[in-house]
Design a protein around this nucleic acid. Structure first.
Length: 300
DNA sequence: TACCAGGAGAGCG
DNA sequence: CGCTCTCATGGT
């Protein structure tokens, strides 16, 4: 028996909501005053975190919160994931530096489209492109009155009906024809995002890589963040830097070699290990975004 | 101002 | 194969 409500608290430990939402796996979360605001599927949602867990607030009453439990992967035992990491110094350092970092489970189409837009872009720019895309081509969805209008991520069918020029107007540049062609394949039923998740990971990766604008790296991101293949290990420039610096100092190792090293070294939760290394490399030496607003710093 | 960004694809030898 | 070049745009 369910009660319709607009808020719900999920008791969960070791969940760094801010790090997770800002770590370059999803691109639509906005950090407010002690909270994060975003759209999951058709629902606007505001999330906040404290020592008791994560509290969600929606604009419309909700009967069943499984969509959020699934998105946030609240049932994952992160300590078990971390125990599956290889026992080496780089992973110890990354796990210590990124305590509470999680993987999300995103809707496959949004994940695929988002990562097609990610190539050679900084995360801040990817967010800007996707924000424009959703404003212009997404469907409006209800948000709390004190917040900006919210939009869903545009469906493949909607994108298939637009033009390359309109996509380029969202500042996605040379990625526009890739996104358009992929959207058309999905809309035409030539590629079924739901079906791919049922395939063995190698086959699924091959299917994804047939799509225009999807190579090995983007395919691995979609496998990991959209389908939950936890052994997928996307190697981008940051992860390449991490692997070279932490595991192969002063040696020249090409991408192929790094990929085969990763495939054998990081175990069944390699995808998590990858995200920890990525976040570790990107944040070390930099101040952390807490979502609690500017903190007073003693000068000295 | 240069260099770089969660790359992919085409062209070349 | 493996290498190089281009693609578009904006942050640092």
């Amino acid at each position: 028996m369910f009660m319709n409500s607009r808020t719900k608290t999920f008791p969960v430990r070791d969940y760094d909501l801010g790090a997770t939402l800002e770590s370059g796996q999803a691109f639509r979360w906005k950090c407010g005053e002690g909270s994060w605001v975003g759209v999951i599927g058709t629902r606007w949602v505001r999330l906040r975190s404290d020592e008791f867990g994560i509290t969600a607030e929606t604009a419309e009453p909700v009967a069943d919160w499984d969509w959020l439990r699934d998105y946030l992967q609240l049932d994952v035992d992160i300590s078990q994931v971390i125990r599956a990491f290889p026992e080496d110094e780089p992973m110890r350092a990354a796990a210590a530096a990124c305590r509470g970092l999680r993987l999300l489970r995103q809707e496959p189409w949004e994940c695929l489209a988002s990562f097609i837009l990610s190539s050679t872009k900084q995360i801040v720019q990817i967010r800007q492109i996707i924000s424009l895309l959703c404003e212009r081509l997404g469907e409006p969805t209800a948000a709390l009155p004190e917040y900006a209008p919210a939009y869903t991520f545009p469906s493949a069918a909607r994108l298939a009906r637009t033009t390359e020029a309109e996509l380029r107007a969202c500042k996605m540049g040379f990625r526009a024809p890739y996104l358009l062609a992929t959207a058309r394949q999905v809309a035409a039923g030539q590629f079924d995002p739901a079906a791919v998740g049922q395939l063995p990971v190698e086959i699924a990766r091959g299917e994804l890589m047939k799509l225009p604008g999807v190579g090995r790296k983007i395919a691995d991101c979609v496998l990991l963040f959209g389908y939950g293949f936890q052994d997928a290990f996307p190697v981008d420039v940051w992860v390449m830097k991490a692997l070279r610096q932490l595991y192969f100092p002063r040696r020249r190792v090409d991408l192929k070699r790094l990929q085969s090293f990763a495939a054998s070294h990081f175990g069944p939760c390699a995808g998590y290990a990858q995200q920890y290394l990525f976040h570790y490399m990107r944040t070390k030496g930099k101040p952390r975004k807490t979502g609690l607003g500017p903190s007073k710093v003693k000068k000295g």
